[in-house]
Design a protein around this nucleic acid. Structure first.
Lengths: 153, 153
DNA sequence: TAGATAAGTTAGACACGTCTAACTTTTTGA
DNA sequence: TCAAAAAGTTAGACGTGTCTAACTTATCTA
């Protein structure tokens, strides 16, 4: 994070936003964090179902880089939220609401990745950065990304 | 999140990444989350010091949209991390390490905001989205953003 | 100067997402 | 068919970041 040419001290003149607008920005970030786990899980579950006909906790854990009990607990949360269907020790499936969310997330993910790649970013970096960025782009920003991708084709 | 023209179901063919690469992406997101609070706080503290000569918990709480006890607790964590200096009931100041982190974060924030605005995104949306995006851009992505800003001037 | 007000801290609680250890259930293969 | 292996769950713990309630300390003003 130190690619700036000059060594001048970064200026901390506040942005034009008043404290309320700034607080709104942080509230948006917290809101995004609240739905982040669900979004990542349903997208991954949809991917596993497409590839293997079912989603198993062991596969979810592997791809998220977490332990199995973490997945079990989070799947329970998603069930309570009405996003997944599954019985104990059985494979995981998405509800209609879960499927709709997964599709929206997948679409958003692809736009962000394609956008980053259109800037010359390599695929590995684009995918990795997109994993975090995707949760913080508004609809307006997504449209701007799409327009930019079309313009650079 | 439904600006796609056609109503076709989103395709869930997995990306080319193997499970390990995918797990690496999520690990990056978790790492980013771990430093996010510290980054937001030191940048905000630097801004308040520049504007008012000091940072007070009441002002930090207002701008973050959280309650005062949350700030008190988090400031204690930043002290333990060696990023701030302050005694009980006294104003908050940054250590050299905190100042360096604040400068790096401020610079990154400005690049992300300028970049989003260069895509035609309005300032309010750019600032709000940048609040979350900034924690997930790698150095390579930041450089690509900078290059794009220069190219569109 | 002293009371009122504002600011700050502490205690305890909560939800979230993570882990290890220990257990239960399912699947596999000899 | 049964033991082994793999997968899955439960219990309990932890750290993080949030809150309310109650308290302490600093500042302000009459």
């Amino acid at each position: 994070m130190s690619s700036g040419a000059s060594q001048t001290r970064e200026d901390f003149t506040p942005d034009s936003r008043d404290p309320e607008a700034q607080a709104d920005g942080f509230a948006h970030v917290r809101n995004a964090h609240e739905s982040e786990m669900a979004e990542d899980y349903v997208e991954l579950i949809a991917e596993l179902i497409e590839a293997h006909g079912e989603a198993r906790p062991v596969d979810i854990a592997e791809r998220l880089g977490v332990k199995a009990p973490t997945v079990t607990k989070n799947i329970s949360r998603l069930k309570v939220a009405g996003l997944v269907r599954r019985e104990k020790y059985r494979s995981i499936f998405l509800t209609d609401r879960g499927q709709a969310l997964a599709e929206a997330c997948r679409r958003r993910h692809r736009i962000v990745v394609a956008f980053l790649q259109s800037l010359g970013i390599d695929e590995v970096t684009a995918e990795r950065d997109a994993e975090g960025i995707e949760h913080h782009v508004s609809e307006a920003t997504l449209i701007a990304f799409e327009n930019h991708i079309k313009g650079s084709d």
